[in-house]
Design a protein around this nucleic acid. Structure first.
Lengths: 149, 149
DNA sequence: GTAGATGCAAAAGATTTGCAGCCTA
DNA sequence: TAGGCTGCAAATCTTTTGCATCTAC
């Protein structure tokens, strides 16, 4: 088992214990699943994957657990597009997204300068940030080319 | 009638004509209403306000028209928080938002530097941006103080 | 043993859509 | 006049919730 997974698992367990909550089989399954997931995922992906592998975890439980993991800062809702919510594990270096409105492609980017400017703004307002979401919508290179043809 | 309103109205009419669509009483009412609105608004605000003033515009029509106005870039979905969508007229100087997770307060800010950095990133990826959304979630000054007590 | 968790089905919201009648161009 | 528009109700989709049952601690 990867080290990262262990660390997060312990963090989750510790948080649950502190709050008097329980570490159940379902919560373990959900945590493992999202840690396996590369990049973005939707709730529905998780639910269907459990179904596919005959793992008994209900949709409600996935929602309930994701809400805890959001609170804990282990996952973030990074994209809200067309009534869909895309989540991401918040462990790797944080990044933001370019979303193509034509094909739905998502390009990740990271800008340390933007992060810093955001922090400065928060300081100006005495605002204590927990997370942020920067989505730039538009047309990707490929779709622009398709239009030219 | 303010000049700004006229300009937007003409833009809307022109767009509708180009697409073979019609400029109806309801579309006029909706456009007027959102131009009157200061700051953010929800669909529900608009619907209720029409009800209050005995103006006949159905919820469906508000949704349908807002979708056209989004396409046109006259309004943007600027905040997606707790399954609510907040819209904003995209005419004034663009700004971004700090959203307090405790009390829901929304603080607007504008940073020309962040805008520029975003534009640079789009250039790097040959991405043609139409709009963006930057939400910073966290705890506002007031709510931090309340917690200290 | 007990408080908390789960699964299910139902509910709640937000948004979209099918359709019959209406209206703009 | 015709094709687009509207209002209504129904349908969808996402997310939450009430409750009886189950389970971690």
């Amino acid at each position: 088992m990867a080290c990262l997974e262990e660390i997060v698992k312990e963090k989750f367990k510790k948080y649950l214990k502190e709050k008097g909550l329980r570490y159940t089989r379902q919560r373990e399954d959900i945590l493992r699943k999202i840690l396996e997931t590369k990049g973005h995922f939707e709730i529905e992906d998780i639910v269907l994957d459990f179904k596919k592998h005959n793992l008994d975890v209900s949709r409600s439980t996935v929602y309930r657990t994701l809400n805890i993991l959001k609170e804990l800062g282990i996952v973030n809702e990074v994209i809200k597009f067309k009534n869909k919510t895309l989540y991401e594990v918040a462990l790797k270096e944080h990044h933001d997204h370019l979303v193509c409105e034509k094909c739905g492609k998502i390009i990740e980017f990271h800008s340390e300068e933007i992060e810093e400017l955001q922090n400065n703004i928060c300081k100006d307002y005495n605002f204590k940030p927990t997370f942020h979401r920067l989505e730039i919508y538009g047309i990707c290179e490929d779709c622009q080319k398709k239009n030219e043809r």
